[in-house]
Design a protein around this nucleic acid. Structure first.
Lengths: 118, 118
DNA sequence: CATATTTGTAACTGGCACGGTTACAATTGA
DNA sequence: TCAATTGTAACCGTGCCAGTTACAAATATG
């Protein structure tokens, strides 16, 4: 399907779609073809594409983002230790999230959204 | 402790601290006093303050944010069903996160960050 | 080969959220 | 009365993100 056709079906502008899809292509999730009758196809079958891959390919920063770069030189070493505590906590949550997303494939999504199609 | 003193200890500007702390006050987590020798104190003991409360008091939007308002009127009903799928998924993840944060109190944070103080 | 179509990407713009800053009214203890 | 402190409004600058335009590169078709 071409980015224009996808744009018509989703309401998302074609340039943005191309940006996202080329990102997915760089991570080996979709295959793109230029020229006449070009467009995008899945690089693997839906059963082999996990949400976690899609998410990581598109989103640069983690779901749980914490800015800890500041105050490392700061007044009290306590700040650094509190920051460390939350870094570890958020890291754990991040792992849980990624595990959830790793267990879901694109095929699962299709099954759950297209079953009662008329 | 006054916002000025907190600012000196954390490097965070006092106005921003007051904004955050007054928000926490509105949610009953800290107690504020104006005037000479005023400042902020915890409204409850650290054992009774859970991270989830602090997080919810300060952060308006959920940790997992998804914009699903668009395309509801859209071309294909499929969009809506896919959106619904991810809404449910993210809701589950949100619940997991909040459960993790509910199990940690401010006292836990203090225990983990101040034990090897010299 | 010529042409039309499509991807990939750069460049610019506008909007929005957020933090920093200044300022000041309201409160309160000395 | 006065100084200190919270609470909050107003404004500014910055950075990020999506939208938009434009165009080179690639490619199928005739």
């Amino acid at each position: 399907m071409s980015s224009e056709e996808l744009s018509r079906n989703t309401g998302i502008h074609s340039v943005r779609l191309r940006r996202i899809l080329s990102q997915l292509g760089r991570n080996g999730l979709v295959q793109s073809n230029r020229g006449l009758a070009g467009g995008f196809t899945l690089a693997r079958s839906p059963e082999e594409i996990h949400l976690q891959e899609v998410y990581c390919a598109v989103e640069t920063r983690k779901a749980f983002h914490l800015d800890v770069t500041r105050n490392d030189q700061g007044t009290a070493a306590l700040s650094g230790r509190v920051n460390g505590f939350f870094l570890r906590l958020f890291e754990q949550l991040q792992v849980e999230i990624e595990e959830s997303m790793s267990s879901i494939t694109l095929a699962d999504v299709l099954r759950n959204t297209m079953q009662q199609e008329e």
